[in-house]
Structure formats: C-alpha cells, structure tokens
Amino acid sequence: MIATRDAYGQTLVELGRENPSVVVLDADLSGSTKTALFAKEFPQRFFNAGIAEANMLGMAAGLAAGGQIPFVSTFAVFASGRAFEQIRQSLAYPRLNVKVVATHGGITVGEDGGSHQSVEDLAIMRAVPNMVVLCPADGPETAAAVRAVAAYEGPVYMRLGRSKVPTVFAEPTPFVIGKGSCLRPGRDLTFVTTGLMTAQALAAAEILAEGGIDARVVHLGTIKPLDVDLVLQAARETGALVTAEEHSVIGGLGGAVCEVVAEGYPVPVERVGLRDVFGQSGTAEELLAYYGLTAAELVEAAQRVVRKKQMP
C-alpha cells in the first residue's frame, strides 16, 4: 500500500537526477503533493509559486517554451479549476511540454470536504484538445507513468490521490500512454476502470466468480487518448460493460467509454461513480462506501448489466 502521490514524489527525484531539464513548480502544497522531495534535492530547479496557481501554470508554459520540462503540482481541484484557462490557453493551445500532476483527486481527499474534492477534473481536462489525461491505479503504475510522460513531448494532466491504495501492478510494467491493460480475462462482462477503482474491480470479479459470473477487468491508466480498441474488444467479446471511477459519471471514464461503445459497438453499460453530486467531509473509506465506490457496489452493477444484456 502506497499513495500514488508518494510514488510521484520519489520518481520525480529520480527524474531530476537523470534529466537536468526537469523543473518542478508547486503552489504552497509541496509537502502534500510530495514535490518537496525534489525541492530538497534540487532547490535551483524548484519554483514555489505561492498560492497563485494561475501564474504557476503560466510560468510553467514559459519554462517549457524555453526548453525545460516542467512538472507542475497542486491539488486536482485547483489545477483543473482555478488554473483551467491557463492550462487551456498557455499550455494546451500551444501544445507545450508541461506535465500537470494533480494530487488529491476525487473524494479520498477525505476530511477537507467537498470544496477540495475534484469530481469533475477528468471531464474538464478530457474536453481540452491536445491534452493527454492519465489516472494511474497504484504506486508502481504511477512511477511508470511519470517516466512515460517525461519522455512524451506535449501537455499532460495526471490525476493522483491522497490516500494509500493497494498495489495492482505487482510486476514491473512499462506504461504506454493510450494503452490500457487487461488484468483479468472474462466472458460475461467487463469492468472498465481507472485509478483506485481498478483494485475494487479485481475484488468484485473474485466475488462474482463465486456466483458463476465471469468478469473481465480492463484498467485504463490513460483516459485520453482512450484505448478504443481494447474497449470495443471488451464490448464485442463480453457484451456488457461496467465503468468505475472516483469521479462524476459525467464526462470522465464512464462518459468516454459510453461515447466509444455507442458509436462503435453498442452494448449495455453501467457507470459507477458520483451521480452528479459533490463530495463531503469524512474518511476516505467512509466516503468510498457512502458514494458506492466499493467492490460490493461493483458486484451489483455487474449483476444489473448482465441482466440487461440478457433482456430480449
């Protein structure tokens, strides 16, 4: 168990040692986003913008235009909200090589409450042309993804979490932007999941197997560009999909998958996520249970979607 933000902070230090072009910016949250690890080792290449996210994103654009590789971190709610237009105009429009690594995504921010829980950042960032949008499942995948985005030339939004999450990728796996992974074969339905919901889907698949339902699990660490082939293959071969994300059901993974299957191979889909509501204070575990982001809820969604599929 490790938080994805911890994996990020550690990998950033490695990148800093390997590549002198890497610079890091933060907006007074470096202890939380874990960029403080980089700041400690490379103070000359770390820029604290203070509590001024708009300027931070603009400075990052200028640094990228000047040939550096900026990683920019703050909480997801501020990166995608406060600094949205700077991301649009100063980064994405010119396709600048800036990596926005937003931690504290989703409701597992916990006690800070709904004001600090981004439930719409994936939808917002997915709508912006030129943006790559990532949401890794665990620590090892985050480390691999950070390396992949450093090697990629262009703007990226990566969403990470605050709380510790179980390891899904126990074996070292290279991260390929735009490619998902089939983590469990299955014939009756497919869980298409991202972020910390992938671990829940694997647990749900175990439970379903006991009841004779054979669930495939496809993890999409990249929300955009979506692995269309893998999603359509799952639709064709299993005939029913359940999406799950720590995000609104509007516009994120669930929205993206529905767009793809509606055009490419229509099958029943159940979307698990926040039903167009904001979060609230509570522990991460309590909130996941309250909003139905659990293996038990995924089991029910799977049973519903299999029934839909069997309807004449």
């Binding site: 000359q44 994103l57 603009g58």
Partner: peptide, 22 residues
C-alpha cells in the same frame, strides 16, 4: 508563446526568463 487571453503573457515571460537563467 500563445497570447490573447489577457493577463497570461507576463507569467509566460517570467518562465522564459527563468529558463534562460537556468
């Protein structure tokens, strides 16, 4: 750089200047 949405160019200029200094 890309400009036109007012208020964003000075931040980009600060970044360009920092890159040159680095």
């Amino acid at each position: 750089v890309c400009t036109g949405s007012l208020g964003q160019g000075l931040s980009q200029a600060v970044g360009l200047a920092l890159a040159a200094r680095l």
